[in-house]
């Protein structure tokens, strides 16, 4: 790993794979930011969310390792699929791993959990005409 990088290439791959799976399962966009904030974490996470191409359908996971803060921000449309309660459960799972120093494991577990909670089962025969 190059000196100073937060994750090894293998760890980055694991996180990106979890993000990809969560997006496939939910149909939402997922984004993960790990770094310090120069202000309060929640407004900073909102700024990050609004930087993304489709913030309404995005779930942003923001981790501040130095400040030991974690924010999950859901856009307006994403919030309909992923309730605040579900986000809180994922935050709890991540918090447990982060407290032991396992950033990668926490992110992978948390993103997977968010994707599962946001998963919407496909409606079978929804577009077919009703038959008596």
């Amino acid at each position: 790993m190059p000196a100073g990088d937060a994750f090894t290439p293998e760890q980055l791959y694991d996180i990106e794979r979890a993000v990809r799976h969560a997006e496939e399962a939910s149909g939402l966009k997922f984004s993960v930011y790990v770094g310090g904030a120069d202000s309060e974490t929640r407004p900073f996470a909102l700024e990050l969310l609004n930087e993304l191409p489709d913030p309404d359908h995005t779930v942003l996971v923001y981790v501040d390792p130095a400040g030991r803060r974690l924010e999950i921000v859901t856009g307006s449309a994403a919030r309909r699929q992923l309730s605040d309660t579900s986000a809180g459960l994922a935050a709890l799972a991540m918090q447990t791993s982060f407290a032991t120093g396992d950033l990668t494991g926490g992110l992978v577990t948390g993103v997977q959990q968010l994707g599962q909670h946001a998963h919407q089962p496909t409606l079978l025969h929804a577009n077919e005409p009703h038959q008596q």
């Binding site: 990088d5 937060a6 994750f7 980055l12 993000v19 966009k29 993960v32 930011y33 790990v34 993304l52």
Partner: peptide, 22 residues
Amino acid sequence: ADGPRYRPGLSWWAPPVWINGP
């Protein structure tokens, strides 16, 4: 071999990482 590891409570050394960012 693993390099520096995150330790809660100690300073954070790495630049920001944005996965699936803009």
